[in-house]
């Protein structure tokens, strides 16, 4: 009898479940060796890095202090951007300039506090959020247009625009938008109370956190249950099959870039409103780039980015904790 070894056509169920766990285990082992190489006790370091931020929860929960808030606030921009990127990457649209779209959104949204400082109305917040999203979309429209019209790689154009947006922000806060009463610091006027997103109760959890959860859920629904989601997945897996089905490649490039850019812009303005409080030369610790990892870690599933966003937010907090208690660079 001849035995033939045939490759499975699909991964086994078991592997689908355990492969993320293997990835986490490998990360921990690699991280442990890195700490060892830096002359630290790897177990202690991993504990500080990953469990310390969570431990706060147990110790301080009783004292009306809710450090998980910090986690959620840090995770919100990561999820908001990551969910959009997950959709774009599913369609093989490689937007890696989310950091730039975040910056552009923050800039356009800040037009309200800078030029309409005294405009106080229920519409103020809506206008700021809308301008933020539009800013991100406009910035993302450039690579989309260049890709469709000239075939220029969106990977490179969107990334180049990150540098351009950061230099634009730098120019604005040092030049025309600098707060005249700000003692020459490179920053705009501080946003007023009515230019800040509402928070839940006494916490620091702001509306942006809720928006992130909604966005992730809505995009997950779109990908799983709507024709648009099917179109995106088809064009991603097989552009040829997508073309035969009558789906437009150019259309999906526009859709994915505007969607992910708009969400990044929203994250940018929300971050500036509630965490930074004004425009300054640096407004994000690289959320747009970390969100790329979030999208992949969430296996390009918008709901997966919720978990991945929280996981990487832990590493931001853990990095801060490690800087304090171990003296390690974040």
């Amino acid at each position: 009898m001849r035995l033939l070894l045939e490759k499975r056509s699909e991964h086994s169920q078991l592997m689908t479940v355990i492969s993320p766990l293997i990835a986490v285990a490998l990360t921990l082992v690699t991280g442990g060796f890195m700490f060892l190489a830096m002359g630290l006790n790897p177990f202690e370091a991993l504990y500080v890095y990953f469990l310390e931020p969570l431990k706060f929860f147990w110790t301080f929960a009783a004292e009306d202090f809710w450090p998980l808030e910090q986690l959620a606030v840090k995770a919100a921009p990561l999820v908001l951007i990551g969910a959009g990127l997950a959709v774009a990457y599913s369609a093989n649209v490689w937007n890696i300039g989310a950091e730039g779209q975040l910056t552009a959104g923050a800039i356009l949204g800040a037009v309200v506090p800078v030029y309409f400082t005294d405009w106080q109305s229920p519409l103020t917040l809506i206008a700021m959020l809308a301008l933020g999203a539009i800013g991100g979309m406009l910035w993302a429209a450039i690579p989309a247009f260049l890709k469709n019209r000239f075939g220029a790689s969106e990977i490179l154009t969107s990334l180049m625009l990150v540098y351009v947006s950061q230099l634009l922000l730098d120019w604005l806060v040092r030049g025309p938008w600098r707060d005249p009463a700000g003692h020459n610091f490179p920053q705009t006027v501080a946003f007023a109370d009515w230019q800040v997103l509402p928070v839940f109760g006494e916490s620091s959890l702001h509306l942006g956190v809720l928006l992130a959860v909604i966005a992730a859920a809505a995009l997950a629904f779109m990908m799983a249950r709507t024709l648009k989601g099917f179109e995106i997945k088809t064009l991603g897996v097989s552009p040829r099959a997508g073309r035969f089905a009558g789906f437009s490649r150019a259309g999906s490039v526009w859709f994915c870039l505007l969607l992910s850019g708009g969400l990044a812009g929203l994250a940018g303005i929300a971050e500036v409103m509630n965490t930074v409080g004004q425009l300054q030369p640096k407004i994000s610790p690289g959320y747009g780039f970390t969100a790329i990892i979030v999208a992949f870690l969430g296996r390009l599933n918008p709901l997966g980015t919720l978990i991945a966003g929280l996981a990487l937010a832990i590493s931001y907090l853990g990095g801060e904790a490690a800087q304090v208690s171990l003296g390690v660079s974040a």
Partner: peptide, 28 residues
């Protein structure tokens, strides 16, 4: 000229160069 504009030139030129070359289908 604002220094930020001059610093952003290499990135802008990169985009323009990509557009010019990628737009030329025969060459690529």
């Amino acid at each position: 000229i604002p220094p930020q504009f001059l610093s952003s030139l290499p990135y802008l030129v990169t985009i323009i160069a990509l557009v010019v070359i990628s737009g030329n289908r025969a060459l690529t």
